[in-house]
Design a protein around this nucleic acid. Structure first.
Lengths: 339, 339
DNA sequence: ACTTGGCACTCACGGGAGTTGAGTGCCAAG
DNA sequence: CTTGGCACTCAACTCCCGTGAGTGCCAAGT
């Protein structure tokens, strides 16, 4: 009973702080939310909440501010879902439906997500390691130059130009193409190395150098390029907070420039379904101690292939942002399936 | 004689202001630069420079600050060249030499440029409209699905998947491929539309729908995708200035998110050789009134194909930045030629 | 066992006053 | 044309104090 009200107080504090960005005091609290008790009572509850580590005072004569732990509790147990309005849903779907190819889907998604959450958005390209090879093509550009194109089921197309040690006869090329297709088509990307490694043996000695060049190019493509791609948008929203808030945006911008870090942020979204929230210092990345990261996975068919999400200050609108991220991830999944 | 000293004073003001970021007064000026005259004399010169619009006072009791016009004069007539040190050159070359493909060259270039200038860097992909088609490939993925790949002499590879209205016989495919190659290989990108437009006529009625799908896909690729690509890096450097300076970074970040604006910034670098500098309000883009843009073109062979550059506060180190941009553009040209 | 009103206490914040000092413009003499 | 002198301006800093929001604690009430 009293425990219940304490949590109601915590929820009220989070909501007020998120909307005003100012420490919230006991009096303002009873005025804005009809809690049916006096400020003094609230003060007792607040003292308890502070002992438990859910809220803190910036300084003695100020109101309370939620701690990371407080937000965590809010997200886990207090936040209701805040579904998007039908017009919003329609707008999302319409905007994404206009995309013409995968690049377009990704760039539209990142712009969309940044716009509706008013935060920095991150969208990962469908992960190659979790995809399968739909087709391989090997084409001669000149007598010693080949291009190998790998088409992935997510719609990604990876290509690479190969410089061969010597002229490649048409027959060898055809043979190699056929064997490559046989070895790779339908295989998952991560199993490519083992499928391709003994391809060389089927060829006469003369062709070996060429085959070797192609095989190592393919290997490089599937290993090097496994540095997945992440697109980023809405960084200007950072400055909006920077103006009036103690978030130093420089370290955040620096962190967001590193692909590795972006991948870490998105990659650790292990929750298979639903939305992952990492709050403040829960986040292992230096420079992002004052930010929260909300991510969700999107799927191709029934297989999660990558993540997307947003980065924002810890005092963000969690319910709204979470449902936006969730909805966008679902729509992206749907779009990918259609293609 | 006196005119000469006035310009020396302007140069000294710009140099001091750029290094200290504080309004510079007459006394400090004679101390730091041995001008051989008294502060009072300098004050007369400064009054004249102010009348001419080269410098201004933030407030009555402060020193002088260069105006955009002052920087312009500095850049045009006063700035010496500040060549990069041999180690710097070596580092640039080495870093770029390690690039494995065009994407890698671009991303390395933008990181490099941001790092050595400590500013926001912009690098445009080699412009398709100024490139020629090296090769075209048309490959069947399934009975109704084709992929068309256009390889450009700059190393760019554009591809697109085409959904055909019906099954495509191998013979039609081969024919179409041959005609596409004949029509496009070696042509400049901007002449693709006229080369391809009457391709349809050579086919029997049955094949027309397929040919039409392919032709329109190619047309879309060369028109839509002419929205050139620009990569961006080093945005964190903006925050460094933001801390202590009256540049609102939000509008700058917003502007930098728009590809169109980035292209405008880079695109207007019309000077064929050398470096283009646009200072403060010379720049037509809203939100960038307090920034300068320094760009240079890079070339493939003897043909300028795209631009790169940096965006920074007007009070930047022009000589250093200009030579860095110039040098990087030259090295990129060299790397592209090697490939 | 909670809740509540009262009360003393803390302390960030804002405004006002005074001081400082860098920098200027002007002028008369060199 | 240069220079030293001089009066003037004004941002920036410091000190100070009043204000008020907010707290913690306690004793009385339910």
């Amino acid at each position: 009973m009293l425990e219940e009200r304490r949590l109601a107080v915590l929820r009220a504090i989070v909501e007020d702080y998120v909307s005003t960005h100012e420490p919230v005091g006991s009096k303002a609290l009873v005025e804005r939310h009809n809690l049916g008790v006096s400020p003094a009572t609230i003060r007792n509850d607040m003292a308890a909440l502070e002992d438990e580590g859910f809220i803190a005072q910036p300084h003695t004569s100020a109101g309370r501010v939620p701690t990371d732990l407080g937000y965590r509790m809010f997200v886990d147990r207090l936040a209701g879902v805040k579904p998007l309005s039908p017009p919003e849903r329609r707008a999302i779907q319409q905007f994404l439906d206009e995309a013409v190819d995968l690049d377009d889907v990704m760039s539209r998604t990142v712009r969309l997500l940044a716009q509706i959450t008013r935060q920095v958005a991150l969208v990962q390209y469908p992960s190659l390691s979790r995809s399968t090879v739909r087709h391989v093509e090997l084409v001669a550009l000149s007598s010693t130059r080949l291009i190998v194109v790998i088409i992935v089921d997510s719609g990604r197309v990876e290509q690479r130009i190969i410089e061969c040690p010597g002229p490649v006869p048409e027959s060898t090329l055809a043979d190699l193409r056929a064997r490559l297709i046989a070895a790779l088509a339908g295989r998952t990307f991560s199993s490519v190395p083992e499928s391709v490694v003994d391809l060389e043996e089927g060829f006469v000695l003369d062709d070996r150098p060429t085959v070797h060049a192609v095989v190592s190019a393919v290997l490089e493509m599937v290993t090097e390029r496994l540095d997945e791609r992440v697109v980023l948008g809405g960084t200007a929203h950072l400055a909006r907070y920077g103006e009036s808030f103690p978030i130093a945006i420089q370290p955040v911008l620096e962190a967001l420039e590193e692909q590795v870090i972006l991948l870490q942020l998105l990659g650790e979204a292990t929750t298979p379904q639903g939305v992952t929230v990492r709050i403040g210092h829960e986040n292992p990345i230096e420079g992002l101690e004052a930010t929260s990261v909300i991510t969700a996975q999107y799927a191709l068919g029934d297989r999660a292939v990558a993540s997307l999400g947003v980065v924002g200050p810890t005092h963000m609108d969690y319910p709204g942002t979470m449902s936006a991220v969730h909805a966008v991830a679902r729509y992206v999944s749907r779009i990918l399936d259609e293609q």
